[in-house]
Design a protein around this nucleic acid. Structure first.
Lengths: 254, 254
DNA sequence: TGCCTTCGTTCGACAATGCTAAACGCTATC
DNA sequence: GATAGCGTTTAGCATTGTCGAACGAAGGCA
């Protein structure tokens, strides 16, 4: 007996395929990409369409993701306990730090942003909730990798893309950073993911002292750093926030 | 041969069930709610969990929606053509109107919010992207019902909940309003969904002159209305925005 | 503390179920 | 106006998911 339901696995693969390709995809593309007969792919797509997970463009006949996914994805956020507990604290962090705040959890081979507070100025910013960040180069990713064994295992398999000249891609280098992250209790990212952008992040624990996520702030290096080092007051603010959320989740402070 | 794949329909029903119930649900609850054997429900849930659509609380064993739904839901927004085209115009509408702007599409028996621009002041507001609004009482819902035959058909079947004393729930009353909506090209909502809140919305058409969505602004009646009527300049601004987006989508202006 | 219920999970056999391959109508293209 | 490609439908076979019953492990009640 198979471990997983075949049609469901295929349906999930289709959704991920549609999420990957920028444009809409045709039935033949989908079928060949997954190695399925056209009729098989069609049956799955028809059901997904009926359930609202997939939509079909009437003109071209091409398929794209459906609206029900947005509704369910938002509902996921509503039920998310870590996010609900963090909401209270992240606004304060954004205000005191003067920078954008991100709350992330481990998902597949990256960090999924579940909450995002804009930098408190009037500049136009795009909400990044639901977006993914890389594990090996961002402060959120590094802190999660350092404290979450599952994330650490994923890191080894993941392909570690170099985004800038300062991105660490070799495992030994990264392991050394993770060691230091564990020792100091927070992680940083200076020019390793985006040029001119720095970030700090600290881990959030639940009542079993398991790492369930991380908070961090991200901003221009010029504002975040002083003398080539991250401003200590920012690091302290981030760590305080992480501790507050952890306490709300039931984590005992040692 | 069945019209739809059984296991997929059941999986979708589970996700919707999990989205409905506020709290996490146990396996037995899910199985009995859908009339399935526990083993059957378990097999589906195991696959959904493996794909990231469902997560299981290690302590209680209960199930909740998974992070992959958030990721896919966000991707849906990224690919959404109407939303992409509307982004440019909605900011201007929010600024000129001084109120919150919503962009909605028909989904199931309601309006799914696919874009939301905050009212341009410094008050704290929660993003409502991914949320649903009722069809029969909001300006967005009424305008979509009036111009989209599919939405109109859904309205008849839907249960029309009375939210305030002014909510219309009887079909003949609603039909009369829809008639007027079609005639004047926009719809309004004054105290019909939330007490003290008014809204205006206008339809957006694609190149086939099919209604693909609607834009509207929502705010306190005191600001939105004058002498018991919606301020004409707000109505004009909303309709201009709808026309601009329609033109961007390829709709010919008659 | 010990019994008992109830939970999530596993097992094995059956037949209903979803898969495959081939043919269909259709639209665009040259 | 022929052709190549699309999405869709059909029929039959065997794979696949479903079911009922039994399992170990928690949690509640006395």
């Amino acid at each position: 007996m198979a471990k997983h339901i075949q049609s469901l696995e295929r349906a999930a693969a289709m959704l991920r395929l549609l999420a990957g390709g920028e444009r809409r995809l045709g039935l033949s593309d989908i079928a060949s990409a997954l190695g399925l007969a056209k009729a098989t792919a069609h049956g799955i797509l028809r059901t997904l369409q009926h359930e609202g997970f997939v939509e079909q463009d009437p003109d071209s006949g091409r398929y794209q993701l459906g609206a029900e996914l947005l509704r369910l994805g938002t509902t996921y956020l509503d039920v998310h306990e870590l996010r609900a507990r963090a909401l209270v604290w992240t606004d304060d962090l954004a205000r005191s730090g003067g920078e954008a705040v991100y709350l992330g959890v481990v998902h597949q081979q990256g960090v999924l942003i579940v909450h995002h507070v804009f930098r408190p100025d009037d500049s136009r910013q795009v909400l990044e909730v639901g977006a993914m960040q890389p594990m090996h180069s961002t402060a959120l990713g590094k802190v999660l990798t350092a404290f979450d064994p599952v994330a650490h295992a994923e890191l080894v398999d993941a392909k570690r893309e170099p985004f800038t000249a300062r991105t660490l891609t070799e495992l030994p280098d990264i392991e050394r950073v993770l060691e230091r992250t564990r020792a100091q209790g927070y992680a940083t990212d200076m020019d390793e993911t985006w040029e001119g952008v720095a970030s700090v992040a600290a881990p959030i624990f639940d009542r079993h002292r398991l790492t369930v996520g991380a908070v961090g702030i991200t901003g221009a290096v010029e504002r975040m750093c002083r003398d080539g080092e991250l401003r200590p007051e920012l690091v302290a603010a981030v760590r305080d926030t992480a501790r507050s959320v952890s306490r709300d989740l039931g984590a005992k402070p040692f």
